[in-house]
């Protein structure tokens, strides 16, 4: 991997964020009501509104407003929330840290289930196990998070009292209680991902098991176990890195729903609140942070892939 590739890749992240910021800013411009009315309410006097508009720069041309906003973002200033009057940046970053914990927990849980499931299905291709995995994955991929979340709450928490219902407990406060509160949300988020990733692992593995080099390895007298662990696994799992990274986009969407249902004060819930309150600076910051997270994850995945697969040479 060359320095010029890294430069290009980082430049790409900035291009992506530029496009996202333009989209987000453009979307907030089509809003029928203006920000000043939102802050002061419908009954505010014209003078007060005019003063606020002047103060917020709402009378300036659109592109100056954009430049002003983006310049602030570069200095870490995402503006002030129209709803709470607090600075948006710190609130969002704190929320993000909780969401990342949830996301990480979900990804680990997902990999822990999906990878063995996919491999098992590929090795036992066409057998009962394969069909069972395939059935699980069809059902899993067809259940929206809000359905699984609601059903999980109904049965696991409400009926059988196996897990605590909604809420969030910081791990630093009470580790095991915190983990217990994370299990259900993480499981709900991972269901669709398990379904998707296990299918991908299966199909990669099936392809690899049909390659000439796997046949060659078998014909060298290696046992099925040696062939599977020594030759096939690595090649089948490499593409999974890319797939999981791309799925992070979907995962972030799931995080929004799950945080709302389980009342976890993460960035997803912040965004829902901001969207419902039409709190523009918070929406803009939240979307930008989510897109940035997605970009960074994919960047890391690319690097990881190139380190693990010697064939890839970036130029």
């Amino acid at each position: 991997m060359s320095a010029s590739y890294l430069t290009k890749r980082v430049a790409l992240i900035f291009y992506t964020l530029l496009i996202v910021s333009l989209i987000v800013f453009a979307m907030t411009q089509i809003l029928p009501a203006d920000a000043a009315v939102m802050m002061l309410g419908e009954n505010a006097t014209e003078e007060a509104l005019a003063a606020l508009r002047e103060q917020m720069g709402l009378n300036n041309p659109v592109w100056t407003q954009y430049l002003h906003w983006i310049a602030g973002v570069f200095q870490g200033d995402f503006g002030t929330s129209l709803r709470t009057g607090l600075s948006v940046g710190p609130v969002m970053v704190e929320a993000l840290s909780r969401s990342l914990l949830l996301a990480l927990f979900s990804i680990c849980l997902m990999l822990f289930i999906a990878v063995p499931l996919g491999i098992l299905a590929a090795v036992r291709r066409g057998k009962i196990v394969d069909m069972a995995v395939s059935l699980i994955s069809y059902v899993g991929v067809s259940l929206p998070e809000f359905v699984t979340a609601t059903l999980a709450l109904l049965f696991l928490a409400d009926r059988w009292k196996l897990l605590p219902p909604t809420g969030y407990v910081p791990l630093t406060e009470n580790f095991w209680d915190g983990v217990a509160h994370l299990i259900m949300p993480a499981a709900v988020i991972s269901i669709i991902l398990v379904a998707h990733v296990s299918r991908m692992v299966r199909s990669e593995m099936v392809d690899v098991l049909h390659t000439d080099y796997i046949r060659a390895a078998r014909l060298k007298g290696l046992s099925s176990r040696q062939v599977l662990w020594g030759h096939a696994l690595r090649n089948a799992l490499l593409p999974t890195i890319t797939i999981v990274a791309l799925d992070v986009g979907y995962l972030l969407g799931g995080v929004i729903v799950v945080e709302e249902i389980f009342a976890i004060p993460g960035i997803g819930r912040q965004l829902i609140i901001a969207i419902q309150a039409r709190d523009l600076p918070s929406i803009q910051a939240g979307v930008l942070i989510m897109a940035a997270t997605y970009c960074v994850v994919n960047f890391i995945a690319d690097i990881l892939y190139s380190l693990l697969d010697k064939r890839i040479q970036y130029d």
Binding site: T16, L17, Y250, I256, V287, M290
Partner: peptide, 23 residues
């Protein structure tokens, strides 16, 4: 295609939520 990639970095649910809410 890079622009399309950029749009894809916003989760589709979030995208839809914002559009519906704003419109």
């Amino acid at each position: 295609m890079r622009t399309v990639d950029a749009v894809m970095s916003i989760p589709s649910l979030l995208f839809a939520l914002i559009i519906v809410n704003l419109l």
